[in-house]
Every structure is written in C-alpha cells, then in structure tokens.
Design a protein around this nucleic acid. Structure first.
Length: 504
RNA sequence: GGGGUGUUAGCUCAGCUGGUAGAGCACCGGACUUUUAAUCCGUUGGUCGCGCGUUCGAUCCGCGCACACCCUACCA
C-alpha cells in the first residue's frame, strides 16, 4: 500500500462509509455517473432576470429552466423538499415534490432523492415560481443525480475556518467560501485587465524560458534542476529580464510577459517560492515614463477590482487617487525619521553608525548608496502606505540599471511601495554593453566573496547588448502582492490557488 | 533559520488549576407537500496531533517531534 492509499484509509469514517454504500446501490441501478445532462440556465442570471417579478406574473410567464449544480442545503418535509444548489454563478432553490417527479418510469425517484447528500451534484428541469416568502425557486419536474459526493462538506453555516485545510484542499474552500471564489475571480479579472491595458499601449505579449542555463535578472537564490539528455544543470528562472531585453535587441520594442518566477528563499505572508510577475520593456522610454505608465496601470487594477481608487486594506485606506509620491532614498529617510540631518545621510561613516544604533548589521564593503538603502529599509519602508515611488537607487545594488547621467553612483531606478511593501521595481535599462560587462564582473567577484545572491556573468546577454539595444525602460510588477492589496487579503496564500506547503 | 501561539467528532467550537470528554451542524431512523442555517422526536460517531516522561491515574503538567498560523530574517 502506498502512503497515499494509507492516508485515504486513515481518512475513512462512518459518514464516508455510508456514502460509499449509497453509491454502491446507485451503481446497482445503472449508470452511477451519467454525463448526458447539460445545464442551460445559471443561478445568477435567473435571479437577475426574474427576482423582481411578482408571484402571479412569474406564474403567467411559465418559464422552464434547466440547471445543474452542487446541493448545498436540503430540507425534506415529507412528500416535498426544498434544496439549494450552487452552480458557477451562485445559488438557486429547488422545490422537489414527490408527485411532480415520480413517474411510471421511475416510481421510486423521490425516495431516492431523499437519500441524496449535501455535496452531491445534480441536474434539474422545471418551472420558475415564487414561494410564499418570495424566493425565486424552480418547481422541479425532472431531477437526476449526476455525481455522488463521498465526503461530507464542512458545516453549512460556518463553512471552513481551518486555514490549513483552506490552503491544502482549495477545492473544498472554493465550494464553501463565496469570499474565496470572489477573490480568485477578481484575480483573473485583474490579470486580463492588465493584458488589455498592455495591448492598448501596443505591447506584445511574449513567453521566454522558464528553464535557464544561467539564472539571471535578479538577485536571488535559484531552484536547481538537471536536464538528462544534455546532462547539464539548469535553473528555474528567477526573472525573465535578460531574455526580454534580448527581444528588445531583436526589434520588438514593446514586450511584456506575465508568468511565474521561482526563488529558493523563505516563505512568509508576502513570499511564495513561485510567484507571478509581470515584466515589461518599452524602447525609447526611461524610468520617468515607466513611473507614469505603472501608476496608470495600477490605478486601473484598483478600479477593475474594487470600482474605486480609494481601497481599504486591512482596515486602513490606501489612496490611489492622488499622483503617487516620488522620493529619493534620502528624502524618504528624512520624511519618516526626524533623527537625521541631510548632511549626515550623505556621509558614509555617519550612515553606518546610524544603522548600528538601530541594531542593524553593517556590511563592511557597503558603499554610501547601499548603506542609505539599508537605513531606508529600517526606518522608512514600512511607513510607505500610500503608493510611493522611491528613486535614485545606488549603482552597487542595481547591476542591470542605467547610471544617472548626473551622478555615476546612482541609477535611474525606482521601486514602488504600497502598504509598506515593494510592489514594483523598474529602471532605465543599462544598454552600454561594456558597462554591463564590468557590472557582471563585479557581481561575479561578489559571488566569489560569498554573496550567494550575486549574479552570474551572462556572456550571451553581453553579446546581445553588443549588437545594440535601444534606450529602454523596463519594469516588473508583483502581481500576487497587487492582488492582495485590492482584495484586502493579509497573506499571499490567500491569492494563490495552491500555495506551497510542507507535505502533509 | 530564530521566537510566539495553536492542534479535541467529518465541520464549527466548548471543556478540564490531573479522575480517559460535550454542544450545534452533518450522518442514521422516524414525523412533516411553500421551507430558509427548516422544525420536532430518537440514535450513531472521539487512541482529545504523535512520542517519551512525571503521576496510583495525563486531553490537561514537563520534554521532544510533526504540521499550521503570526512575528522576525532573506527577498518581490
């Protein structure tokens, strides 16, 4: 017996045993899993069309419908019953009376129906009517059990509250939680909205490799795998950046990709080992253009998901309606902490001592920029609640970004923060092949010095740049985190169907 | 990786400063042809996450382990 079979056996209980024996009886009567029933009507639409009709009017209209769905509620009252079924769109009530469904062909149908369980999937045909209390209901004339459910559903009123089961058995969560269904419908709507938006701006949707011979495009630890036929190690991609830029070299001026990245790092409410990112590149633009564009895109997402630019996240308001703030690292530090003077923040030794005072670990070889960044993360980042762009990232932590024309120590780079977390990262791309080669060499040196997240030297990417990449702006947006914000979810696991979990 | 909290019936939850457990829903049997988490009557269901220890006795105390959630670290 395999582990899985063993798990199933341990899982068995009297309720499942009871249902298995019901299924056995159904099998003995003929086809237990018929597949020749097709619904023509759906709960939500029926409610929309007929909810407001008076009882008598509805009766006169004589509307016959065909529905199918999972039985969520059942009230048997002797020779007649009410049942509520749930289809993809919502719920609708059935009125099932013995004398309406039993026939010469099957005089036992109603007594069979009485044995059907919550969770069973059934199909029904009948006429719409209003009950005495005014609920739109189908007076069933034909009913059929399409799929026997062997496992009992969670409690019909409280639903599923065990987070672990919600994540591990998302199918159950989706059956019983309207809120979960709503969240994932919104996620889907957001992503197709983003696609529409990108197409409007003439971006081409592309797909680049998920298996990389050299991991690149971000500072992160990769997952490793092996290609047998080629007998070579490969890496699940940590970012699509270097491939997308190759496409810009090739002449596709505007490209975007919405797909998974994989990073072999810790899990948290904001981190899943595989997460969805949109990266996009636009030739002949720079980081200023990207900030305007990204802002517009994110405002559209807020509208698509909530219908509003003022969004409540974890009981606090996020205001997308105003132009997003733009601050340099130093400005952000000064804004959120009154402990420092501007001059101090321009001095390496005093920035490092400020970090030490806050209990941070000072990195020996870190320059002014990297140290400012560290201080920023310690005192300012979590306070960036409303959308805020932070600009002027140091060259030493931005190996793929174009250096500022005015100051060689900083890059034309921004990160967007909302609700204290990083949502997007973009920059004017470094298109000087010789500079890029130097930066890769510096990364390789850092890797040899023990920085596991430093980048590899990608010779083919340098070769591509040597053919010439036009001046280009590029940006990545963390889709899962964005979805969290506009669906008001505290954990990334709430917006990923099957979040990574330890095996049971 | 470090810290905190949790794990009791299929589900939602009580309970016990140590004497081997209860409710509601679901299930099973019965009554009921307009119910609304239907109602009413009667049942069934648990090695109280796993292991070790302390104890006459552990669901409860201690230690370890597993898994989850939160915080923290790395990062998006």
């Amino acid at each position: 017996m395999t582990d899985k079979e063993e798990m199933n056996v341990q899982d068995e209980n009297s309720i499942i045993a009871e249902r298995r024996s019901k299924l056995a009886e159904i099998r003995s009567l003929g086809h237990a899993f018929p597949n020749n029933f097709t619904p023509e009507d759906f709960a939500k639409k029926l409610h929309a069309l007929y909810e407001n009709d008076e009882k008598a009017d509805l009766e006169q209209k004589n509307i016959h419908v065909v529905v199918a769905g999972r039985m969520m509620l059942k009230r048997v009252m002797g020779k007649a019953s009410f049942a509520t079924i749930q289809d993809k769109s919502g719920r609708i009530q059935l009125y099932v009376a013995r004398d309406n469904i039993n026939s010469d062909k099957n005089p036992e149908l109603y007594s069979q129906f009485k044995k059907w369980d919550l969770g069973d999937i059934l199909g029904a045909k009948g006429k719409l009517f209003k009950t005495n209390t005014g609920e739109l209901t189908i007076e069933v004339s034909e009913i059929i059990l399409l799929t026997k459910s062997l496992r009992p559903l969670p409690e019909k009123f409280h639903g599923l509250s065990d987070q672990e089961i919600k994540y591990r058995q998302r199918y159950v969560d989706l059956i019983v939680s309207e809120d979960t269904r709503e969240t994932f419908l919104k996620r889907s709507k957001i992503i197709s909205g983003i696609r529409d938006f990108m197409r409007e701006y003439e971006f081409l949707e592309v797909e680049t490799p998920m298996l990389h011979p050299i991991p690149g495009g971000a500072s992160a630890r990769p997952f490793m795998t092996h290609h047998n036929a080629l007998d070579m190690d490969m890496f699940l991609r940590i970012a699509p950046e270097l491939y997308l830029k190759r496409l810009v070299v090739g002449g596709f001026d505007r490209v975007f990709e919405i797909n998974r990245n994989f990073r072999n790092e810790g899990l948290s409410v904001r981190h899943n080992p595989e997460f969805t990112m949109m990266e996009f590149y636009a030739a002949y633009t720079d980081y200023q253009w990207l900030m305007d564009f990204t802002e517009e895109c994110i405002k559209k997402v807020a509208i698509d998901a909530t219908g509003d630019l003022k969004v409540t996240y974890q009981a606090k308001l996020i205001d997308f309606s105003k132009p997003f703030d733009r601050l340099t690292l130093v400005e952000a530090i000064l804004k959120y902490s009154d402990k420092y003077k501007k001059d101090e923040l321009e001095d390496l030794a005093s920035v490092k001592s400020a970090i030490k005072k806050l209990g941070g670990e000072v990195v020996e070889h870190a320059g002014l920029g990297a140290s400012q960044l560290m201080l920023f993360e310690m005192v300012a980042e979590e306070h960036l609640w409303n959308p805020t762009y932070i600009v002027d990232y140091p060259v030493e932590v931005s190996p793929l970004a174009r250096a500022s024309s005015d100051n060689k120590e900083i890059t034309e780079r921004f990160e967007l923060f909302i609700a204290g977390r990083e949502i997007a990262n973009g920059f004017s791309e470094l298109n000087d092949a010789e500079d890029q080669a130097q930066r890769f060499k510096a990364q390789v040196a850092a890797k040899e010095a023990g920085d596991e997240e430093a980048m590899y030297y990608d010779a083919d990417f340098i070769r591509a740049l040597e053919y010439g990449m036009p001046p280009t702006g590029g940006c990545g947006i963390g889709i899962d985190r964005l979805v969290m914000l506009v669906t008001d979810k505290p954990s990334i696991r709430d917006v990923i169907f099957f979040p990574h979990m330890r095996p049971e």
